[in-house]
């Protein structure tokens, strides 16, 4: 089944991931800028990182027939360093011109400190000024509920287009508040610390999948890009049709990301060759 992996940290993964994803239906990955596991000291390090994900990584993915796009941002954890963040923010518009950069992300909050909030707001303002999409990271574990409320509070006070903003890492306690406010929501499947394939399927059972993106992130920590495939299997067991699964795992990412014309993968559906209307193939 064709699918799009909308949140994937390719630089932390080996080529074997690409090969196995290509063999199992992934046609595109989208790579947000994120925390490297340590706090970087120099703005230039970020700029080289942005070059890596916007110039080099697409060539690595292309070896396996996978399209690669990316986002640029100072991640919420390093946004605590206001001075460094401001210098990087000043350089980010240069990257908006690149053919595979879709927007600003992942910005957002980590511990919801005043510095983080200021830099998050600056990221969103920059994105709106340059008509970019926005990907927002919400905090981990015990910080998530408060941080998600804070993200929504900050956005509410700004002149934003909710349909161009994706609030990621929602779980049971944050799904409805983010989507009801008009934003796209993302469920990130992790082995331990975020959502699981079964719980994501439960949320789709309960709320439907309008403005929902399911991803498995995959980074340098315990993570597994194939958890989205596990989620597909779980939903198939629950009776979702092939076209519904394509709608969730391929078309929804195409719809959201396609708001930036650089992302040119169109929604699809499966039809019988005899021309009958699509059923539960």
């Amino acid at each position: 089944m064709r699918m799009i992996q909308p949140h994937y940290h390719a630089i932390a993964r080996t080529a074997q991931d690409y090969e196995r994803m290509a063999m199992s239906g992934v046609v595109a990955v989208v790579e947000p800028a994120f925390w490297a596991g340590f706090d970087r000291k120099y703005p230039e390090t970020f700029l080289d990182y942005f070059r890596q994900i916007s110039e080099f990584e697409p060539t690595r993915a292309a070896e396996y027939g996978i399209r690669h796009w990316c986002w640029v941002a100072v991640n919420p954890k390093e946004a605590e360093n206001r001075e460094l963040s401001r210098v990087v923010l000043d350089q980010m518009p240069e990257f908006f011109q690149k053919p595979t950069v879709l927007g600003v992300g992942e910005t957002g909050l980590h511990k919801s400190t005043p510095n983080e909030c200021e830099i998050f707001q600056a990221h969103v303002e920059l994105a709106m000024k340059h008509d970019q999409l926005v990907l927002i990271h919400t905090p981990h574990l015990a910080d998530k509920l408060h941080g998600t409320k804070k993200v929504l509070e900050i956005l509410k006070g700004m002149n934003v287009k909710p349909e161009r903003i994706w609030i990621d890492h929602v779980e049971e306690h944050t799904f409805a508040m983010a989507r009801d406010a008009g934003y796209w929501v993302g469920m990130t499947l992790y082995p331990i610390t975020k959502c699981s394939p079964r719980r994501a399927a439960d949320l789709v059972d309960r709320y439907g999948y309008e403005r929902v993106l399911i991803n498995s992130s995959a980074d340098w920590g315990p993570s597994d890009p194939f958890l989205i495939h596990e989620c597909v299997l779980e939903m198939k067991r629950r009776g979702y049709s092939l076209n519904q699964l394509i709608d969730i795992f391929h078309n929804n990412p195409a719809r959201f990301l396609g708001q930036n014309p650089k992302f040119d993968i169109e929604p699809i559906e499966v039809r019988p060759l005899n021309g009958a209307k699509p059923g539960s193939a």
Binding site: L141, E172, P191, I192, T193, S196, R198, R199, D202, D205, R206
Partner: peptide, 19 residues
Amino acid sequence: LETRCQLLEIAATLDRLGC
């Protein structure tokens, strides 16, 4: 964290049964 994850799965399973 692993236990938290396992308890969440149990809670979700009971919710699934209730639904």
